[in-house]
């Protein structure tokens, strides 16, 4: 089988496994809902928060922080759930490129679905001040793609190094900070309904970072994988 077929097969297997247990999806969805609800109650302790001047700013930043932590939790699982025997089996039937590609694509699908749902839930609890809704959604999509590509590689490294959550956070946050800064800036522009042409450069940078991360993952994963 060539790379494409292998990737498709592995991707189908990931989706099938998830469909049967729905563990990652439901777990993270519940995580998002609880976080949003905690934020909702905590922020509404102070009267007049919604009408205050800083509300749109807080709305935007809080959303991205919730998505950030949800995606760390969702994607950290992607290599954690693989047992040693199963990895050995993959080694026998598929190439390392197919495995990392299928994981990245699966995580992108999962994160896209989750972040759109999260946006809807978030908008239910916190009044949505966004002007350019379509553009905000596109930013959220871009964000979930970027988080998936970065965290998949990091979780592969962390899983080889003893699988602890601390390591995952330490390794991923320096990498994700520039991405999340770009995303917050992009989404703030979408929120204020500024001209879309202003953001082209930022989108290109985000995509370039993604291409770099995917390329390095493809180059490095074969080395990481052999034990």
């Amino acid at each position: 089988m060539n790379l494409f077929d292998q990737t498709i097969h592995l991707l189908k297997k990931e989706i099938l496994l998830e469909w049967r247990s729905k563990y990652a999806f439901n777990g993270v969805l519940l995580y998002v809902v609880s976080t949003v609800f905690v934020c909702y109650m905590a922020f509404n302790l102070n009267q007049g928060f919604v009408d205050s001047q800083g509300y749109p700013l807080v709305w935007n930043v809080l959303f991205w922080v919730i998505i950030l932590f949800a995606s760390v939790n969702a994607i950290a699982k992607s290599f954690l759930q693989e047992s040693k025997g199963r990895l050995l089996y993959y080694y026998a039937i598929a190439g390392p490129h197919a495995i990392i590609l299928s994981k990245i694509i699966y995580n992108i699908l999962l994160m896209t679905l989750l972040s759109i749902l999260a946006l809807i839930i978030y908008s239910v609890f916190f009044k949505n001040p966004t002007v350019d809704n379509l553009y905000y959604c596109i930013t959220v999509l871009l964000g979930s793609i970027s988080f998936s590509t970065v965290f998949t590689m990091i979780s592969a490294i962390a899983s080889k190094a003893g699988n602890n959550g601390t390591l995952m956070a330490i390794l991923s946050f320096p990498v994700i900070i520039p991405v999340i800064l770009l995303l917050i800036r992009l989404s703030k522009r979408a929120m204020d309904g500024l001209d879309r042409g202003l953001s082209t450069q930022d989108i290109v940078t985000l995509l370039a970072i993604n291409v770099i991360v995917v390329a390095t993952s493809l180059i490095l994963f074969p080395f990481l994988w052999r034990d």
Partner: peptide
């Protein structure tokens, strides 16, 4: 921190090398 978290020498060498190669382009971008 990553280097110190792994005890086995070869594994440590391999994983930290991979992370080092991964970190360099990101550092340049930053």
């Amino acid at each position: 921190v990553l280097r110190n978290s792994i005890d086995e020498e070869q594994k440590r060498g391999k994983i930290s090398s991979i992370y080092n190669i991964f970190a360099f382009p990101i550092m340049v971008v930053l």
